[in-house]
Design a protein around this nucleic acid. Sequence first.
RNA 1: CGGGGCGUAGCGCAGUUUGGUAGCGCACCAGUUUCGGGUACUGGGGGUCGGCGGUUCGAGUCCGCCCGCCCCGACCA
Length: 577
Amino acid sequence: MRYSRSFIYTLKEEQKEATIVSHNLLLRGGFMVKLASGIYNYLPLGLKVIKKVSQIVREEMDRAGAIEILMAAIQPAELWKESGRWHEYGKELLRIKDRGGRDFVFGPTHEEVVTDIVRKFIKGYKQLPVNLYQIQTKFRDELRPRFGLMRGREFIMKDAYSFDKDEQGMDLSYQKMRDAYNNIFRRCGLNFRSVEADTGSIGGKDSEEFMVLSKTGEDEIVVCDRCDYASNVERATSITEDEPGEEMELKKVATPGKETISDVCEFLGADPKFSAKALVYRNDEGNYFCFFVEGDDELNLIKAMRATGSIEIEMVSDEELENLGLEKGYIGPVNFPNRDVKVLCDYRITKRNNLVVGANEHGFHLVGAKYGRDFECELADLRMVKEGEICPKCKKGRLKKMRGIEVGHIFKLGQKYSKAMNAVFLDENGRAVPFYMGCYGIGIGRTAQAAIEQNHDEFGIIWPISIAPFEIEIVSLDTRSEEIRNYCDSLYELFEKEGLDVLYDDRDERAGVKLNDMDLIGIPIRVIVGKKSFEEGKVELSLRRDRNKEKIDKNSVLDRVKELRDKLYRELEEVRR
RNA sequence: CGGGGCGUAGCGCAGUUUGGUAGCGCACCAGUUUCGGGUACUGGGGGUCGGCGGUUCGAGUCCGCCCGCCCCGACCA
């Protein structure tokens, strides 16, 4: 591609819209431009990156035996009603009507559609297993779109769906996808970890997320410093060192005006660990719940939702609290005053012999409360794990918290959708069995942006060669010298002929402009042709990732460039970490 | 959804307090200059001041409604 005939427009100034580096660089580098909140146009550079990532994904999916299709973006509501998600999915689902008033959705995911396809064609177990995938534009009406492609509303996603005749088959399909995903992200040059994850609204049992490690990630993950345990905090567990404490008599004490854990504990001289904090929530069905966790623990909302079978959950207002007959700041599990509010305690609560709890009476708390003796309720794991706690897997290592960008997610769905949608096949015994499904997603744009978040410097992007918009850039620093121009032109044509992916900056611009654009766009291998070296018969070769320049005979550029290119690709094949 | 902020040229912003016919930098066009890290100078084009309505002789500026965008929060009762 000749720069002068391309559609690449870089921006000098920081973009107000962007709050993280990768987003800023995508905009400034002319990779994309915003059309509306969370909706972007991909410009030629951005498109090339998208294509490169997609190609890697395709190769690995194909290699794993998956088959590419392309499903409809717009889907009839009937399918979503059949699966039950028409009501479950919430406001992120963009619902639209056609001229006849019929309901449709712009697909945020394709379980329903693919299940419908498969049930139409797969009738017997001999046709299984099958894994169908597509790379497609999806839409989720995000609560708060941000960070460019990281959390957009419209986004390009690879999604795959496996269908098996039994659970073992499903496990195998899942395993294959996990291997494929590891290959994909390694080939994209990313530093990532796979972690145990919550299944969210997709449903199902096991699931793993592929996280690109980055401080700007939206997800928090915990990893063990001794073994390979890694989990999203949403479902992470830990072993905590417990001290039961001394058993004491239950006593009511006046705590006027002390309504927060820290105030109460300070006032009573108690350790917050020996207190129970109450959190009252209402779920999507209008049911009320009161969760008790230890005073210095945090409630893990995802765990709370799972424990209550809720899809959405919201903290109740002070006003609602009052209507429920609950005293703000003095809520306690002993003689809990409202039967319509379901009470759940975190397991840790049961391990303390004496707790400070609210007395359900304004201005009073109870001390010495003990689970089983003074109160009982449903128990659940409700707490957020903390850094430094003991690994639940090896039982030795300590847990460390990190942040990650979720670029891939694989699930074992089981028969959730096939049952709901009556998608069945006949097994060896002629019995109708719902398919055992798995689903596997990769955010294509997000993967590209995560790569920038991990690979950049103060001047711009440093693309891994496998997903760079071009592999090589030739910069002609002196466009008025006919000799140099002819040389560059023929070098460019040679590269093209050799099948190298090359950008040739032939613009009549100042050297500084071109060199800055070169750094910003971040193409990994650069060939710089300037007057000084050229007169000595040399051109300059450098890699974007380091500042070293090598002067090389102008007639042996091709060989050296190919060498560098092969080296960069080889590095991505080697196992990381 | 709650709170805060912003909307003036393609981008980044000033002007709004005190109403008087719109400006700066970058980008763009023409010319001169410069030529290995965003060159300097001269001249130029480009605006329904987010939209609608109101107040006023006169509104970017004051008032009302609406729209769009951004940030923070939505775990401690």
